[in-house]
Design a protein around this nucleic acid. Structure first.
Lengths: 353, 353
DNA sequence: GTGAAAGCGCTAACAT
DNA sequence: ATGTTAGCGCTTTCAC
């Protein structure tokens, strides 16, 4: 069915070696021969099989990408960055998603190994505890983590703890005192934990009381009534919510709106991720913004740097990209907040160090 | 570096044939031998290379996916559906994006062919005119188009013309008379054209004047001043905008908002795609909704049906999935619209036939 | 139950 | 300039 180099050789009346040369080193064959071979190639619609080539030890130029989901645009944005560089550099991408499930993470990575990818870009739930990453290290397989915030492995991320800290300090500077953190139910990720740590630190430093993150079901159409009650009633209801990601923030905003709660008048909201769609909201979502596309690109550069042996500096280390506070309009100042407070927050260092 | 079946054979003290059998037909080897071989496999972390296997004519279980971009969630949603079924059925996905560029489409498809994918799921700019699809037909390569609305090739889509027609009739039923259609600059796609056709038909049928689609730069931060003027000033300014996709609708909404134009009070907006994020907007975006995840799943089923020869009905034909009108809150009734008009629209057939 | 050997598509070293 | 051949990792007869 599919023609092989043999078919071309027979059709052209030369040996397979000549055909191979015509393809891979055209200048070494007689122009007349070359022309005939090329005609046969066209006539038969021949294209060299990567199998034979790879079998000979050539590179596969195949990179694996493992993401939790594409339903959250944060990963689609990263993938955009990766895909752009991959196309430009003639690599192919094999994509797998895991739904934040450790078993599926293992399975995805296993599959990619079996496919002999040259390296992988991974976003896993928990980078520090997942034994499969140790296996990769042990076996010398190249990978770069993306959005996993760990210094123990090659990774590209923002400083999640510091970013959350900066964001919550900003809320505090706007006069908020009762600030609650919300997280998704699948939030047992290293990122979510670090974001909570940053929240706690900012709160404690301001002498405020930090609470455990309140878990919200992402996919539910409505906020659960007890959750809604917790957010909206009582004298001690929070005046601001720090959501561990933008998608969650958007779901919560909708829930509050349906309960006739105005954002930001009745509740301020701060997200995390800096999704492009967040800026299209009304009001535009305030968010601790990660350079997602750039994180994807940086992960790519580190990985290919190691693959091709051309790494700028030490690409086996973790890289922290700067986050930014995207102001948006979902945060209101609380009466009594001093301007000094607002001024102070602007001087905060916003990048890891 | 990477162990081969030979290494395992040597380590276990058997021939490579026995190792192969231990892997592929365990019941045919002596349990003791089997055990030893398995120990060696574990000890060496051996995994059979797909190259050798495929070289022997086994299936690659590799499917190519070609999408315009991941920046538009509509394609990410489709990909979600595809990916789900692919994982479940043990297929691998190779992903390429094209940015709506015909050359990149050709290149992507070429690359996937060279990689010997068993089939591809494609979203191209124009399904009817792209010669590369004829090449696929000629060479017997399996593919299914996704979101390309054509009866000439295997495809899964909504009826874009009818969907647009339904949507615009709904606007008309709400009393709108001056309805403008907006499209992105990259909108020279078959879908965009069909949506415009549906718009024109609905307008003409109501005795209203249809206009050419107004092109909007998607990525611009602001609406271009002349565009904004066109939308917002003059006695003949439109009262409703039909946007050829949701992302565009969101960008336009932001532009209008910034110009102090309230949606839907000063302008009604109807999108197309039914993006999940649209429902999270305030007000929730009215949209002609395509079942994107399901379109991805259906495309997958058709493709694998053909690959595995188990097609339900004739999978080489195009499949039209039903669209729905998502009401949202970005559409206001215009004074003078009769209730009868609104009632009538609810009776519209909403699925293709 | 196990081994030897051929062959899948291709490249490269060697031979002509 | 072109042809011959070995061998990459694996499965699968065919012998033993």
């Amino acid at each position: 069915m599919i023609p092989t180099i043999k078919d071309v050789a027979a059709h052209a009346g030369f040996s397979i070696a000549t055909v191979s040369r015509a393809i891979n080193a055209p200048h070494t064959v007689n122009p007349v021969t070359l022309d005939k071979v090329r005609q046969s190639i066209d006539a038969l619609h021949f294209r060299p099989s990567p199998l034979g080539r790879q079998l000979r030890g050539e590179r596969s130029r195949l990179i694996g990408v493992v993401l939790p989901t594409l339903a959250n645009p944060v990963f689609a944005e990263c993938l955009q960055g990766i895909d752009e560089l991959a196309s430009a550099q003639g690599y192919r991408l094999m994509l797998m998603t895991t739904q934040y499930d450790a078993d599926r993470e293992r399975h995805a990575i296993d599959t990619l190994r079996t496919q002999r990818v040259e390296g992988m870009i991974l976003t896993v739930a928990d980078a520090d505890t997942h034994p499969i990453l140790d296996e990769l290290d042990r076996d010398g397989l190249l990978y770069v983590l993306m959005h996993n915030d760990t210094v123990r492995r090659p990774s590209v991320s923002v400083d999640n703890r510091l970013a959350a800290y900066d964001g919550v300090r900003m809320l505090i500077a706007h006069g908020h005192r009762r600030i609650l953190m919300l997280a998704g139910t699948l939030a047992a990720s290293d990122r979510a934990r670090l974001r909570h740590t940053g929240y706690v630190q900012a709160m404690q430093q301001a002498g405020l009381q930090a609470a455990p993150a309140l878990e919200i079901d992402f996919n539910a159409d409505e906020l659960a009534p007890p959750v809604l009650a917790h957010l909206t009633s009582g004298a001690t209801r929070p005046t601001a919510l720090f959501c561990s990601n933008d998608l969650l923030a958007m779901v919560v905003m909708r829930g509050l709106r349906r309960a006739q709660f105005d954002v930001p008048r009745d509740m301020s909201i701060l997200g995390f991720d800096g999704l492009a769609v967040g800026e299209l909201l009304s009001p535009p979502l305030a968010s601790i913004s990660a350079p997602n596309r750039e994180i994807g690109c940086a992960a790519w550069r580190r990985l290919t740097g190691r693959i091709e042996g051309t790494y700028e500096c030490d690409a086996s280390l973790s890289l922290t990209l700067p986050h930014t506070l995207r102001e948006g309009a979902t945060i209101a100042a609380i009466a009594g907040a001093s301007d000094g407070g607002v001024a102070r927050v602007r001087e905060l260092p916003q990048a890891g160090r």
